[in-house]
Nucleic acid binder design. Sequence first.
DNA 1: TTATTACTTTGTAATCTTTATAAACAGTGT
DNA 2: ACACTGTTTATAAAGATTACAAAGTAATAA
Lengths: 152, 152
Amino acid sequence: MSHTHVHESHDQLKDALDTLKQTGVRITPQRHAILEFLVESMTHPTADDIYKALEGKFPNMSVATVYNNLRVFREVGLVKELTYGDTSSRFDFVTTEHYHVICETCGKIVDFHYPGLDEVEQLAAHVTGFKISHHRMEIYGTCAECNHKDLH
Amino acid sequence: MSHTHVHESHDQLKDALDTLKQTGVRITPQRHAILEFLVESMTHPTADDIYKALEGKFPNMSVATVYNNLRVFREVGLVKELTYGDTSSRFDFVTTEHYHVICETCGKIVDFHYPGLDEVEQLAAHVTGFKISHHRMEIYGTCAECNHKDLH
DNA sequence: TTATTACTTTGTAATCTTTATAAACAGTGT
DNA sequence: ACACTGTTTATAAAGATTACAAAGTAATAA
């Protein structure tokens, strides 16, 4: 494992903080902690997940702070909001482009890299007359673990 | 325009009612009206849209009835629930497979036919070990009208 | 036909997520 | 120290959806 790989999440956090500085967004302890949690989290947490995860470190933090700062992060492009069928939004620290594969049984979300579907966007533009900016795609199924359990 | 095309939505409704009969779901006046509205609606209405659209015909219908029956329709596969970023779900009568192109300015949703992305599903299955069942994709941009307005 | 049963609708309350608001707080520059 | 601006907190409010109990309606069996 390379040196850069070991320090990957550290660097990602550092880059994110730099972005905030350059954008003129203050780096408060709460913002630092939320960002850190997002970078290190391999899951795709909801606002409430983040709130609960940080209540040890910030017993007085308000849920509104979590929502406010997730909005700030989204606006400067550090974070993507994922809206699936379930009740609450999930938040994904933006690294490289990727899609998500979602287990319909246990809800697990796995990152999935695939070349951008430029052709789809081009055809959509041609057929609909839209100026296309981006697309989203999720792939649904059942993960290996849940498949095993089904067979028991 | 062909004879079949003229009667398309009529046939779709008939087929949907047949599906309900075969599944043993009672066809109540409310269910009939909700289905009819979904089939004929070119938009992708929210539960509240449906509720409002039918309150002339059913002044006493409860909003719970709309939700209940949309769930029933979803369970028998007649309707798809679309969860975008906005607050409420939209409901789409299931016909042929298609994707949606969404205007980020005015919210308009346009159907978009494209061959299924089987290759993506196959690669996802291979890489993640999931058993894939389906995928969803939305394409975002601005529609021709909104582009014009921007230039005024 | 009547009685029984199961399903459906209605009306309302409750829940849950997210946003709005106002007051307290903190950092920065003069 | 003072004023200014942005941030957090606490709480209320909004909006979508679900839960629940009572009343209504259709299907079935006796």
